[in-house]
Amino acid sequence: MTSMTRRHFSALAAAALWPLSGLGQGKDDTLVMRAIPSSGERLPAVGLGTAVVFNNDDAKIRETAAQILRTLLDKGGRLVDTASTYGDAELVLGHAMPAAASRDKFFVATKLESPDSAELERSLTRLATRRVDLLQLHNVRHPEQSLAQFRTWKTQGVCRYVGITSTSERAYGAVESVLRREKPDFVQIDYSLDNREVEERILPLAAEVRAGVLTALPFGRGRLFRAVRGKSLPEWSTDFAESWAQFFLKYLLGDERVTAVIPGTSDPAHMADNLGAMRGRLPDAAERKRMVAFVRGL
């Protein structure tokens, strides 16, 4: 959904955005990396989300996915996030990752709807692997949900990290309960410049229990691109953002509690643009407040 909206937006704005980017020339080329709190392992701060964009498995989508994955690696990224319920996304990735590079180049995260061995086996088969880097309990809804089986799988070497996810504010109470009790390695939550509830509820708790944070829906389900359609970047932001995508992503990365953002895309050029948010400086606290005020005024 996000990528489709952005595609229409980019058709109108590409002429303004790409010349502005200048391919990052003359700017600090150091990648933004974030440490996973539970281990200290450092992870590139921009990854790839696969919801919707790889729903159907065919030769064309596999090749596009391979191009996107090559771009991800070429521009310094590693993280790929998917789920058992994302249509054929796991299957597409299972074919596309070997076409792009060796499996160990990627940090692979997937999600299960329940601690079910059959669901896990299906995901591993579709991903063409016997282990993933991060295994997440998807769509946490109940405060008593347990990660005991996920921890068993971690001990067995099926995954290196365990986590929980939600993209529904109605579930934040359950997320808080599970996060506080289970202390997972990661929490994945919806967070965007126009959807900031997690700043008061989830991010402080994640920091307290030393959970890494992945941000789903960082473009607000396409709302942000629709809001700025036909508009130029504000002049005061061009020192740190070279496109609207980077403007939106760098707001999130400006909070050091965020480990990585995972925007979805089916376009290699958009993947490259997103990854540009890992380069150059991040907005400071005053600039982030200004970004919030700017979006409120749209």
Rank of each mutant, 00 (worst) to 15 (best):
E169Y: 12
E197A: 15
E208H: 10
D29R: 15
T125L: 07
L72W: 05
R210Y: 10
I36P: 03
T129C: 07
R170G: 07
A51G: 08
A51C: 09
R288V: 15
H8R: 14
T152M: 14
D284K: 08
Y161T: 08
L20I: 12
T110K: 03
Q67P: 00
K231S: 11
G22S: 03
R257Q: 11
I68P: 03
Q136Y: 06
S21E: 09
P263K: 00
V178F: 10
L203R: 01
L17T: 09
I262F: 05
V132F: 13
E144M: 10
D185Y: 00
A65C: 02
R226V: 06
N56R: 15
G77L: 02
T85S: 11
G212K: 06
S117H: 15
L137S: 11
S114V: 08
E235Y: 13
S10E: 14
T30H: 15
D284C: 09
E200Q: 09
H138K: 06
R62L: 01
L233C: 09
W244T: 04
A118C: 09
L134I: 14
M278G: 04
L252D: 07
L249R: 01
G276D: 04
A285K: 04
R201E: 10
L249M: 08
R122A: 06
T64R: 09
L20D: 05
V108R: 04
T265C: 03
G264D: 01
A245L: 06
H95F: 07
V178I: 13
Q149V: 15
R210L: 10
D88M: 09
V92T: 04
L72M: 06
D74R: 11
E63V: 15
I164D: 12
L205M: 11
A260T: 12
H270M: 04
D190S: 14
D29P: 09
P263M: 00
L217E: 02
R181H: 15
L135D: 05
E199K: 05
T82L: 00
A269K: 04
L217G: 04
V108D: 01
K231L: 15
G26E: 10
V92C: 06
L203W: 05
H8W: 05
A272Q: 10
P37F: 15
R210V: 07
D273V: 08
R210D: 12
A245R: 02
L17R: 04
E113N: 13
H270E: 00
P98K: 02
D273H: 05
A272V: 10
D273W: 07
G24H: 09
R170H: 12
W153L: 01
A15Q: 07
V132I: 12
G222P: 06
R126P: 07
L249F: 12
V46E: 01
R196Q: 11
T259Q: 10
K289L: 15
E121G: 09
T5K: 13
L137H: 12
L69S: 00
R170W: 10
A65N: 03
V175Y: 09
L12W: 06
R180L: 14
V46H: 05
V92G: 02
Y86D: 01
A216S: 11
V52H: 04
C159W: 12
V228F: 07
A51Y: 08
H142G: 07
L124H: 11
N195T: 14
G220N: 02
V80D: 00
K111V: 09
S192G: 10
